[in-house]
Computed example of a mutant assay.
Amino acid sequence: MHSNDSATADPAEPDLAALPLADRLAQLRQRMDAIPARAGLPARAEVPGHDVLPVPGPLGDLLPDHGLTRGTVVACPRGAVLCGLLAAATAAGRHAAVLSSATGPQIGLLAAWEMGADLGRLACIRTPDDSAAEVVGVLADGITVIVLDLPHAHIRRSAMETLRARLRSKGAVLLVTSTDWARQAHLDIGIQRRPNYGLGRGRGRVTQYDLDIDISVGGRRVRRGRLVLRGAGGRTRWHHPDAAPLTLAHTG
Rank of each mutant, 00 (worst) to 15 (best):
Q106R: 14
C124N: 14
A37W: 06
A112V: 13
A232M: 15
A112M: 13
T247M: 08
P64R: 03
H95I: 02
L19W: 15
M32D: 02
I143V: 15
P128M: 12
D65S: 10
G84A: 11
A133G: 12
P48H: 01
V73K: 05
P54F: 02
R166N: 01
P54C: 06
A88M: 08
H152D: 15
R29G: 04
G49M: 03
S216G: 09
T127L: 11
R237P: 00
R78F: 07
A96M: 07
T103F: 09
D242Y: 04
G120N: 14
A26P: 12
G79H: 06
E134K: 09
V206L: 12
R44P: 01
L199C: 13
T207V: 14
L21R: 15
P20G: 11
A80W: 04
A243C: 08
D129A: 15
S216M: 10
P245W: 03
S100P: 07
C124Y: 01
V206N: 14
R226K: 11
I191P: 02
P42L: 09
Q184M: 10
W113I: 08
A80P: 12
V147M: 09
A88F: 04
R70Y: 00
V47R: 13
L148G: 01
A37E: 13
R168Q: 08
R220G: 02
D149V: 05
L199D: 12
S3W: 05
D61M: 05
T103H: 11
G57C: 03
H239Y: 10
A172R: 02
P151V: 08
T8C: 05
S169I: 12
R38G: 06
R157N: 02
D15T: 06
H250L: 06
D129C: 12
C76H: 07
G219W: 14
A96D: 01
D129I: 09
D242C: 03
D23T: 15
T251M: 01
Q184P: 06
T103V: 11
D188V: 08
R223E: 02
M160T: 06
A102K: 08
A91N: 07
R78N: 10
G104A: 13
D242E: 09
D61R: 13
M1A: 14
A243T: 04
M115P: 05
A75L: 09
D141C: 08
R44S: 00
